[in-house]
Design a protein around this nucleic acid. Structure first.
Lengths: 222, 222
DNA sequence: CGCCTCCTCCATGAATCCATGGAATACTGT
DNA sequence: ACAGTATTCCATGGATTCATGGAGGAGGCG
């Protein structure tokens, strides 16, 4: 069977994509990049990594074709190579959540108790159309700027406690953040509830909103 | 930031799925399993692997939750854990084909020259409905038995040369095999063309047929 | 040109992965 | 219980990966 070598090479090339996904730190960087382009230093800070460590992992991702780089002066901006990569990352999470029992446990540990109500994307649209709810984006400012749900108000989770009065008191609040693995919206709903506000959480987050074809305001990914 | 540990653990758990995809041999096994359940010995033979090597990789896949095992007497049958895993494998291939330039080159080397005509799934259905074409499944017998396109005729590629007369001469032939990375249908179309038959190839293969929600004959995956 | 910022390259030791044989286990049939 | 088959467990050496420091570009600015 002379094609044994060619076949092995083909699968080895495919495995480069898999290898890139085989490290928790890289997945964390990928999750951040799914929200929008970032520089190396920003990514390192957001993921609590050393600069060289972050750079090394980003280059691994780049070699696997999952991210691209653009130079702006001295800074290098990394971005997801395309929405197919975001879809891949989403599918990894889907499979892991469904098949790896420890993922469910780890997710509950990270996200906290299951004490917040969540609604789906269609329900969000319905409540907004009815004028019943305001949509609150609690991600960091730059991520909101890179793209968000149309009509959403941006109050990063760090500033939420001090800016409560900016949210109309007579409306229900629907908070969202990055995605299913993001803790911000959980924290936001708890904080709002503690202040007597009626708040629910969007199931999943902005990544899934975008992947499911819903409209996005602000610059889109290339 | 006290949740740093929990977050790291969560991503590390997710990375177990990625790690499982980070080896060409395992991807090859996954590709075979996407066609239907198989025993360890069958998989080892199909992928030209040592028995212990195949067993070790299959257990890695199992630990990552991508496959399940069922015991039948002394033999252990491995199967994909679900269609979400097949979708993940498909998405890996999509991204790799689009983003890793070497994958395109390796695929061409493996699949051979681009000398065969291919048609899409809808076009296949149209030609069959018109009575113009017969559908030919050239995968090994057990894979056909595990599931196939309704109405397809099974002639494994190894036996095709000796069973040409079984195919009606007045019809066009649409050959398919496992998926986009499977060489059988390419070879089949070349062989049929060399014998003066009018033959085209289904784009992609059975995996994509099933994932896109088209009907399947024979036992389906759990 | 010097100097600063941002990032990449290089080297290193610890840890992990990989393929592979030989031994051990699980189950079947007699 | 015994022999036979299918699979897993175990040990091993070689290769790869990982995090992290320090040196080395690349580009902007005075």
């Amino acid at each position: 069977m002379p094609d044994g070598k060619a076949k092995g090479e083909l699968f080895a090339e495919l495995a480069r994509v898999g290898k890139a996904l085989g490290n928790g730190t890289r997945l964390e960087l990928l999750d951040l990049l799914a929200q929008g382009p970032r520089s190396v230093a920003e990514l390192a800070a957001a993921a609590h990594l050393g600069l060289t460590t972050a750079s090394a992992h980003l280059q691994t991702l780049k070699r696997a074709g999952l991210v691209t780089t653009t130079r702006y002066g001295t800074t290098v901006e990394y971005a997801l190579a395309g929405d197919d990569v975001a879809a891949l990352w989403h599918q990894v999470r889907e499979v892991a959540a469904a098949r790896v029992t420890d993922v469910g446990r780890a997710a509950r540990t990270y996200l906290g108790p299951d004490d917040t109500e969540e609604i789906g994307r269609e329900e969000l649209l319905r409540r907004v159309a009815d004028g019943r709810a305001v949509v609150l984006d609690v991600r960091p400012g730059p991520e909101f700027a890179a793209g968000h749900i149309p009509g959403a108000v941006s109050i990063p989770i760090d500033e939420l406690a001090g800016r409560l009065e900016e949210i109309p008191a007579d409306q229900e609040i629907v908070a969202y953040c990055r995605g299913a693995l993001c803790v911000f919206s959980h924290d936001a709903v708890r904080l709002l509830a503690a202040h007597g506000r009626s708040a629910v959480r969007l199931r999943d987050g902005f990544l899934e909103w975008r992947l499911s074809g819903h409209p996005v305001a602000g610059p889109a990914l290339p």
